[in-house]
Design a protein around this nucleic acid. Sequence first.
DNA 1: AAAAAAAGTGAAGCGAGCTTCACAAATTTA
DNA 2: TAAATTTGTGAAGCTCGCTTCACTTTTTTT
Lengths: 213, 213
Amino acid sequence: MAYQRSTLMQERLADNRQRIVLAARGLIARGGFREASITAVAAAAGLSTGAIYRYFPSKADLFVEVLTDAVRRECALLRELIARPGTASARLCAAVESFAKRALEGPHLAYAFIAEPADPEVEAARILCRQEFSDVFKTVLSEGVASGEFPKQSVEVAAACIVGAFTEALVRPVAPTTRRVDDRKLVAAIVDFCHRAVAGVPSPSRRSRAAPR
Amino acid sequence: MAYQRSTLMQERLADNRQRIVLAARGLIARGGFREASITAVAAAAGLSTGAIYRYFPSKADLFVEVLTDAVRRECALLRELIARPGTASARLCAAVESFAKRALEGPHLAYAFIAEPADPEVEAARILCRQEFSDVFKTVLSEGVASGEFPKQSVEVAAACIVGAFTEALVRPVAPTTRRVDDRKLVAAIVDFCHRAVAGVPSPSRRSRAAPR
DNA sequence: AAAAAAAGTGAAGCGAGCTTCACAAATTTA
DNA sequence: TAAATTTGTGAAGCTCGCTTCACTTTTTTT
């Protein structure tokens, strides 16, 4: 009869796989791709180097999964925010702000995901991830345009621009010995930019939010 | 008699050395340290790999020189701006703006210089470079405090904070397929931040500069 | 419990890139 | 021009990290 894994065994395997991904993500967050050698990942996951290759055909494939896994979670969160009740404007800002804040919590990780030079395979995965982000924002833009809240525009292009603005403005890898620029200000500025770009107005509500507190 | 290099020969050697440094800088600007292999540097400089080691004892030493060379030029420019006539406030802003603008012209290079994970030797050189930048700003801060233009403060710490703010806010490596956030806005925001931090006032002159144009 | 199948190990294979070295070319001295 | 010295070459050496593989351990089937 064909070999059949018990549920306990299946869980253990799934757990191993997850631990590998988490170990890789942790190492990347600490020191970029440089730190995430297979040896280091294996050690951090409590496995031998050979075991890694039972779960992933290559290092690049592992990195691609780390990337897409993180992006999937991120997109799910954003979709949830965007699906909530409220004006398109408010929901867009909430999504942008949420994304920006989280990216700033792990700037080194964000940099690795967005721009650190990597294998062609990983670069290819990045394109797809950008597209996924773009699609999320396209939803709320379309709704805003349909309701007349936003002026008529190419939501396809606008969504891509928002993602582009993120990735350009957000990535600030860790500078070890220095203090950070105030994250909230940066987030507010990015939210502001995106909102203005889409809504086509100076957005006084934004200004009043940025100033006090 | 002892061997003596002719001036022509000396010039050729100096030229070779300079070409190596420039080649390395160019490659780093294009694709980070990853692209700047000794083979690639040698090819770009029009020399053999072995020749590189007549000018630099190791790859790390070459990178350190690329770094310190660029920083030296940058600091010279900043010192010049700071030495000009005008209020401490204006000179500080001019220096910050100048620095920020130039960094944004080559974000990948800036990232490599400021934060890309590298050899310990290069990291050590970074600390010294930060110190050098810090010292430049300390000058104008001291003058501002002495003249009563800035409130009393630790210029040592404040200068370090300014450099820290830069390095955190500026580094935005290239995102290949997307358009950039408006550089001028980012520069203005950084100038604004630094000025406010030092002068301790909302700086209405800054606001009026950021809005129009 | 024995056999079969899968999962896990870690040392060895392998390639890429830094570095060295024996040799060639060029430059300076005599 | 010949000898001495320095500079330049590029293939070979070496190291490091990804990947593989023969073998052990664990899990499943009979």
